[in-house]
């Protein structure tokens, strides 16, 4: 399907240093739920490289350790084995985690506040993006007054505004309807073309991975390890109907089914 909107004029926050991500043979297990129970091995020897400015997508069945992988890349949890070498990374979690007392504008600016901006500065910087994301008029709306898709857009914006060189997006567009999802994908592709960032993108949607990423890693069911790495060479902006993408999609789905 063709994307409907052009990437908007406004660029995301600047202050981005170049930075890549390099994970080598990362292993992570969680203790069993009860004493004596087997531990849950979430990741087993996963390697991942994203050069500065690259987008790497990770697809895999539910529970295979995708979220765990992102949290390791962000330095939020330590792996049991393997090495992690990553520039500062901002997380967009699978749950939106918006603050219930703050309006959309202040929620979007939270990462800016964490970086030391005043409330006013954060608002100034977030306001134009809120408009680009179809949230104009909802600046003061609290999360419970927003739809699921709107909440997800606010959460996405918040991550984008963090100004960190690496973005770790965990199912960023999962709650959106198909049309909005395609708009957001186009927006992200445009923003990254204008102002490259390193992105790790976790998604259930193979097409989304192929449209956005330079490389797609397919993970096995738990314990997660990489079963296939697909290089996506197609020129951007990409179309879903591109024969190369269609062929890669078949391969990815085959690997997922195996």
């Amino acid at each position: 399907m063709q994307t409907r909107i052009q990437a908007p004029e406004t660029a995301p926050a600047t202050r981005i240093e170049a930075g890549g991500v390099r994970l080598e043979g990362v292993t992570k297990a969680f203790p069993g739920r009860r004493r004596g129970a087997d531990e849950v091995i979430a990741l087993q020897g996963v390697s991942l490289q994203a050069a500065p400015g690259e987008t790497v997508a990770v697809v895999g069945p539910s529970g295979c350790g995708k979220t765990t992988l992102l949290e390791i890349a962000c330095g939020l949890i330590a792996p049991d084995g393997g090495t992690v070498d990553a520039a500062p990374a901002a997380l967009m979690a699978q749950r939106d985690l918006l603050l219930p007392w703050a309006g959309a504008l202040d929620n979007a600016g939270l990462a800016l506040r964490a970086a030391g901006a005043s409330r006013e500065e954060a608002r100034e910087e977030a306001r134009p993006l809120l408009r680009d994301f179809g949230l104009e008029g909802f600046e003061r709306a609290r999360p419970h007054e927003l739809s699921g898709g709107m909440r997800q857009r606010v959460a996405f914006l918040r991550t984008l505004l963090s100004g960190r060189p690496v973005l770790c997006l965990d199912e960023p567009f999962g709650a959106l309807d198909a049309i909005t999802r395609h708009e957001m994908q186009a927006w992200l592709a445009g923003a990254l073309a204008r102002e490259p960032r390193t992105v790790l993108l976790v998604t259930h949607d193979v097409e989304e991975a192929l449209v956005l990423a330079d490389r797609v890693l397919v993970l096995s069911p738990r314990p997660g390890h990489v079963v296939a790495t697909l290089e996506v060479g197609a020129p951007r902006p990409r179309r879903r109907t591109d024969p190369e993408l269609v062929a890669l999609r078949e391969r990815a789905l085959q690997e997922l089914r195996a």
Partner: peptide, 10 residues
């Protein structure tokens, strides 16, 4: 805080 879960099963 941040109650609503996204429709993906986490």
């Amino acid at each position: 805080v941040g109650e609503r879960r996204l429709p993906v099963d986490p």
